[in-house]
């Protein structure tokens, strides 16, 4: 390992330790914002692992996240299963779902994939509501645990750590390199021996896995869950905006997008909730027209300017 790597590791460990003590110093409101932020850090970082190099824009986060939350809720409420068991099953179910979606859509151009994932959360919600109304009876589900907000925060932080370690490994692995080549030129990728379809499906699967895991862990926060609440198309868009705002060329890019955006989003939602949709739209336009490479790109450009 080079000195640079050691430096990054030390910085990462220090930041992680600082993040871990937040529940001891924050008040209730601050902690709840922190939980939301950590949740989006996990979602956006794992999103960027797949969508960053390949440029396939996934809007499936909401669907996978919902699968996580919903399975925990229905398992605990309808079948009396433990939270831990359901939190382990849910990501696996989402991973299988992701493989199926990936096999059907990732052979084709990016447009088909975006369109397919665009309505996915809504479709799964319709399907789940229908099954629940017709076969299971109840509509709302209870997730009752002993977890405090701080417990949820630490669990999510742990998941984020796993995602970062996975991303770090990926950046040095053949699979990560394969994805970068695919993002550059898929025809070349095939001809240098990359199984492009599987490489994409595997990465999409890990995004689905982590989104569902995060959805499962955060479920106890709400105690009462209904499909309309956990399958949120808006969540998918927020994840995309935060990741792109930060920049996907670096593993830590989404992180620098999530933190400011969560704060601003929180502020707008509590003070100007009528304008929240408009604000999302403007954020998209800002990314496309002003900072296409995100904050990371801005930092790099400034860095180069200072050097010259």
């Amino acid at each position: 390992m080079r000195t640079n790597d050691w430096q990054s590791i030390v910085i990462a460990v220090v930041l992680f330790a600082l993040a871990a003590i937040v529940p001891f110093i924050a008040n209730g409101y601050q902690l709840s914002v922190a939980v939301t932020a950590v949740m989006y850090v996990g979602l956006a970082t794992s999103w960027a692992l797949f969508s960053g190099p390949t440029h396939y824009i996934s809007l499936a986060s909401g669907a996978f996240f919902g699968v996580g939350g919903y399975l925990v809720a229905t398992g605990m409420s309808d079948y009396n299963l433990s939270f831990w068991l359901m939190a382990a099953i849910a990501p696996l179910v989402a991973a299988v779902l992701a493989i199926l979606i990936g096999l059907a859509t990732l052979r084709l151009s990016g447009v088909y994939f975006v369109i397919f994932t665009l309505g996915l959360a809504e479709m799964v919600r319709n399907l789940v509501s229908w099954i629940q109304n017709n076969f299971l009876g109840s509509r709302g589900l209870y997730v009752l645990t002993d977890f405090t907000e701080a417990h949820i925060y630490w669990m999510l932080l742990g998941v984020c750590a796993i995602i970062f370690i996975f991303g770090w490994w990926l950046g040095r692995s053949r699979l990560g390199f394969a994805l970068r080549i695919i993002g550059n030129d898929e025809a070349v990728a095939k001809h240098v021996g990359i199984n492009t379809a599987w490489s994409k499906v595997i990465l999409f699967m890990t995004t689905g896995f982590f989104a569902a895991l995060i959805g499962a862990i955060i479920a106890p926060r709400y105690s009462y869950i209904e499909p309309n609440q956990v399958f949120s198309p808006e969540l998918s868009f927020l994840v995309v905006i935060m990741a792109l705002l930060g920049g996907t060329q670096r593993l830590w890019g989404p992180l620098v997008g999530v933190i400011p955006f969560t704060l601003v989003w929180e502020f707008i939602n509590s003070n100007f909730s009528n304008f929240s949709t408009l604000f999302l739209g403007l954020a998209f336009l800002l990314i496309v027209y002003v900072i296409p490479r995100g904050f990371v790109g801005l930092l790099q450009t400034w860095g180069e300017k200072i050097r010259t």
């Binding site: 824009i57 868009f237 995309v240 408009l278 999302l280 739209g281 998209f284 336009l285 990314i287 496309v288």
Partner: peptide
């Protein structure tokens, strides 16, 4: 895709 998403939200 991103730009027209932005427009759709603005609308």
């Amino acid at each position: 895709i991103l730009a027209t998403f932005g427009m759709s939200f603005i609308f």
